[in-house]
């Protein structure tokens, strides 16, 4: 009998804590490991975020996640010509390093989910279609002797494309040049046409990350998503700061489309 109750409780707990496909409010992740990567969900090629910050990995919809970059990430551009692309020496930048810093979220990207093994081919095309935010965005790798190798830069024309080899897991340096809310319009696709595009939400510096972004995104009906987030109030401060940007973001999110051949 106690065993039965235990089992029932466990099931209930599972139901409660198994992350729903769409959480009520975005999950703010400020430290620990996450990866952006493709999976097959109900047979559909889907771009999701693997969240390793809890006891086991959980895959989340990008719309349900905000990556928060705290001030531990704040540093200054070194006086080194190799890093001039980040700004003038001494200017402030927020850097999520290629190698884990316990105080910060550590975002990477991977093509290792077993569900895609059969369909992925040699590599996945990773595209950046645009970035909105108060500053610039740079994603680069640091080579052997400190030579930076740019993967994406908001200073370059869109779309930008890089390849992620099948079955790999990579980390890079994510740099933002001003505090505030950023939306990265990203896509991962296979050579034979499976593709999914999503908005990766990143919040830099002070302010409430959960309210820095419009909360109504893709799938579920509005009533399941209202409540807590709305109740916290409209983020007037950020809207004022962002101005037109937030409007652009709403447009961007609402036109988030999913193409799928699988």
């Amino acid at each position: 009998m106690p065993r039965l109750i235990q089992a029932l409780l466990a099931t209930a707990a599972l139901l409660l804590f198994t992350p729903a496909a769409h959480a009520q409010a975005p999950v703010v992740i400020a430290d620990g490991h996450v990866d952006l990567g493709p999976r097959l969900v109900d047979g559909r090629w889907t771009l999701q975020i693997r969240d390793d910050t809890g006891d086991g990995p959980v895959w989340r919809e990008p719309a349900d996640v905000v990556l928060q970059i705290g001030d531990a990430a704040k540093t200054t551009v070194p006086n080194d010509p190799a890093y001039a692309f980040l700004g003038t020496p001494g200017s402030e930048v927020w850097v999520l390093p290629q190698v884990q810093d316990q105080r910060l979220v550590w975002p990477g990207w991977n093509t290792q989910d077993p569900s895609i093994a059969e369909v992925v081919g040699r590599e996945v095309d990773w595209r950046l279609h645009g970035v909105t935010g108060p500053g610039r965005f740079e994603l680069f790798l640091t080579g052997n002797f400190g030579t930076p190798q740019t993967i994406f830069s908001s200073g370059r024309p869109y779309p930008q494309e890089t390849g992620v080899e099948a079955g790999t897991h990579v980390h890079g340096n994510w740099v933002f040049t001003a505090p505030g809310a950023y939306s990265l319009d990203v896509e991962m696709a296979t050579a034979d046409g499976r593709a999914d595009r999503a908005t990766l939400k990143v919040h830099v510096g002070p302010g409430d990350p959960a309210t820095a972004f419009p909360t109504t995104s893709s799938a579920p009906p509005a009533d399941t998503r209202a409540g807590p987030v709305e109740a916290q109030g409209v983020p007037w401060g950020w809207i004022a700061a962002g101005g037109v940007l937030v409007v652009a973001l709403v447009v961007l999110l609402s036109r988030r489309a999913r193409r799928n051949d699988g």
Partner: peptide, 27 residues
């Protein structure tokens, strides 16, 4: 000078690198 711990400038070392992205030409 920051890499002087590896040896004199111009010296040859075998090195497994910390990042290997970019070994292939995309596509």
């Amino acid at each position: 000078p920051r890499f002087a711990f590896l040896g004199a400038p111009g010296a040859s070392v075998h090195q497994l690198p910390q990042a290997v992205l970019g070994k292939h030409v995309h596509g």
